[in-house]
Design a binder for these strands. Structure first.
Lengths: 227, 227
DNA sequence: ATTACTAGAATTCGAGTAG
DNA sequence: TCTACTCGAATTCTAGTAA
């Protein structure tokens, strides 16, 4: 690793240097960040000379606080990340309709599932899923959805069996609205399952092997909810 | 500058590498980030060997997407920054009561001001401000409040004069609730003005030169509002 | 007890260039 | 056309140590 003003400022911020002068000693500062005392000394001098912190030397140790310039550096980073993770956005993807697996229909006929979908997604799901194999180009989106702020369907038990938790996202397939389901444990790495209030296979463009456009709503993360 | 995996991942994310494979050429990648083609080549190899991106070489260029590990790296950074800027928190500070300037009372007697305070802060302000000189220790908080997500009092005109915009934050002074006002242009770098629905100087511990505890509510930033 | 200088080791970066 | 190797210059980091 090497000098990274933003990382250092985030570290100081966590200690309160945005709102007050905090005491910093080079040995401790270096140790906490994995650097030598000498390097920490250079880093602090550099942050100060670049105008990111204000530093006053004391007889023992020094006191620092973050300046407006330093605040901007990390606040801009926050704004950028908020654009990626904190704001709703629509993610487009292309995929190919795959034959259903039958498993989805059984899952969707469980009342423990139907009730949650009606409550959290706002529609009564047709008992069957549409499987879409994502184009290789777009397959990474599954990773994002699995770790993202989806609508949680809690696990439930029925027929003496356990049905696992899954995450849902509102979406449209060829312009028809529904929801993407991302099981916690997916067997198929490139396959998404879509539910809707209608039988999607009845739609004109939907048949096995057809290529469809999918638009997934990534809802962003409100401060109160964490996955 | 030097190798900074997080900065590189944020850059790739903005190009869509969280949700799909994107085409990256080392020359272009380097130029956009201010590095040579050779350095960009090394950086991309390094991101891949550290497991932050998946990279497939094409006849011309390469395609990359961000892995789960890479996603975690920047998502954790986002979470940390959200703790600083996105979540409500209470910031404590100490200050000393200073003689009022008289200016505050005139400002607070304007109906263009009173109406906004009642609407946005929820109380009818007593026509006078309590000036608090922050302890040197806590003076940096003004910087944070001035750039933060405060409640905006819009500028207005009255008596043929313009009254400037200011930012407000709910607070308590010695346990009594009120609000901090941060004018856009402050004359006094260490002084905060406090308003309340009562005359704060009537309170037992409040007299010139008394040291008081201030608790400012930093409200965090909901995705919809930007300063 | 704490900062920061000097000097040397290790790493990083870019030009030239091969594949 | 594009990636990535070699090698030398520049930078960064740590140990020892002075202040």
């Amino acid at each position: 690793m090497s000098y990274d003003a933003r990382a250092l400022l985030v570290f100081l911020s966590r200690k309160g240097a945005l709102e007050r002068f905090i005491e910093v000693r080079t040995e401790e500062f270096g140790r906490e960040l994995g650097y030598s005392q000498q390097t920490a000394s250079i880093y602090l001098s550099r942050l100060a000379s670049e105008g990111y912190i204000e530093r006053t030397m004391r007889h023992r140790g020094s006191k620092v606080c973050i300046t407006g310039k330093g605040l901007s550096l990390i606040f801009d980073l926050y704004s950028e990340l908020e654009g990626l993770f904190g704001m709703p956005r629509v993610i487009p993807a292309k995929g190919r309709i795959a034959p259903g697996l039958g498993e989805g229909a059984y899952y969707l006929s469980q009342s423990g599932y139907i009730d949650q979908v009606m409550d959290k997604l706002g529609f009564r799901p047709y008992p069957g899923t549409l499987n879409i194999v994502l184009s290789p180009q777009d397959s990474p989106v599954i990773q994002l959805l699995r770790n993202g702020p989806g609508i949680v369907i809690e696990p439930f038990e029925s027929d003496g069996r356990t049905f696992g938790r899954c995450l849902c996202y509102h979406c449209t397939v060829s312009g028809t609205s529904g929801a993407v389901m991302v099981p916690n444990r997916t067997i198929h790495k490139n396959t998404l399952e879509i539910i809707s209030d209608i039988r999607l296979r009845d739609l004109p463009g939907i048949r096995d092997e057809a290529v469809v456009d999918l638009s997934v709503v990534y809802p962003g993360r409100s401060p109160s909810e964490r996955s």
